[in-house]
Design a protein around this nucleic acid. Sequence first.
DNA 1: ACATTCGGTCAACCCTGTTGACGTAAGGAG
DNA 2: CTCCTTACGTCAACAGGGTTGACCGAATGT
Lengths: 241, 241
Amino acid sequence: MTTRVPPERRRRRPTRSGVLLSEELIVQTALRLIGEHGPEALSVRRLGAALGCDPTALYRYFHDTDDLVLAIADRIIGDAMEGFAPGDDWVASLRQMALRVRAGYLAHPRAAALAAHRVTRRRNEIRAVDMGIGLLLTAGFEPSAAARLYLAFIDTVLSHAAAEAAFKALPRPQREADQRAWRNVYQDLDPSTYPALTAVRQELPGMADGSFEEAVELLLEALAARASRNGAAGGVGAVGG
Amino acid sequence: MTTRVPPERRRRRPTRSGVLLSEELIVQTALRLIGEHGPEALSVRRLGAALGCDPTALYRYFHDTDDLVLAIADRIIGDAMEGFAPGDDWVASLRQMALRVRAGYLAHPRAAALAAHRVTRRRNEIRAVDMGIGLLLTAGFEPSAAARLYLAFIDTVLSHAAAEAAFKALPRPQREADQRAWRNVYQDLDPSTYPALTAVRQELPGMADGSFEEAVELLLEALAARASRNGAAGGVGAVGG
DNA sequence: ACATTCGGTCAACCCTGTTGACGTAAGGAG
DNA sequence: CTCCTTACGTCAACAGGGTTGACCGAATGT
């Protein structure tokens, strides 16, 4: 191959099956492939087959599989935060941010799982950080507290979302086995050795559903409590459970 | 292969190079391998080479690569929780659990990145779950709430720890570049476009340190508040900030 | 001492990502 | 309109991955 991907494509040559390749089409097809047949369906060979071209043709557009994944991830980030504006209620606004980030990640689990902990210091992220800290400032927190608390909040949201995405990106048999574990393994335990688990036995199957919302609500409760304890203006967004 | 892994090993037969295989030795070697050469260094063939045995001998102990990964994860949990017994103060005990899990993950950053989000359904994990739910039951929560809240708590702890571990597992140049970016990129921003970030500018360099403790404290505050709202027996562990 | 079965070894299969060589068609230059 | 260059689609091949079935020697319970 040797030829590096040019910044702008000049010549187009139809593939054997007549398709005109492009970076856009490849990313698009990759996302479709993942969406339809699961994350494990993304491989160079399969992607080539889906595009109707030789697998190695992709190396004319991405010098690496990782390069392709990053291209996909880059697009996801842009989509996630698009068109969001915070409202008057700072608690509700933070909740919305959390849900948006999570939705963006879950929409494309595998790419998200790969790029989750890579912090892109780009414009969309910077705007989100500014927005979140701004919300905590209007909540009445001191600048230092606002910065610290925002970090705790967004880190929790991001790592939770990444965890969910990682789970969803698991090969299907393993994913389903993990889910079944709560129903099977955790059901047949010796009551005397595991008294607490026995007491909550009926609740365990629900454990597979994750805890994103609950964790976010707990955090928002704590933040709201601290804010009102500071005698600050309270966005009293519906917290509680 | 066909023979499933027996619950207890009875016979030992030395490998061609004289090593006596065991589940313990295999997991141990796998952790060393990952620790030295990264998560991608874990393959059946390489592990066999490191152990001085035929790669397929491992299938006598783990019926699957995934099975091995789960065993590794469970061992990390076991190491982290070893010798821990919950005290009277349920809040303090949960805090200790959180710190222990985090320490265990950070001790094996690269392995943690591989196994963090899995349900190992093995002994060490089951014991930890039983312990945690037990603490919330003594706090006075109903079984269903105890199960849900424990999940939210431990998921947050695990995903935070995994995020920290993933960051720590990054190649040094990338890791340091990410840290520098906080100081560089976020310092030279236009005040009118990013007013909140400008207001907390002095606090930003500290953002690189992470937020594990703060997030845990926020969660514990919220849990304690809910518990006392339920009129429950309160372990009033020192919460607040 | 014998029969059983555990478990280490070997060969093989099919999947990956990736590379280098090859040739063809596209596009600019004259 | 022709020619030359180069983009890029194709092909064959390599290295490495997980997993399986057959083989059979050795360790163990009887």
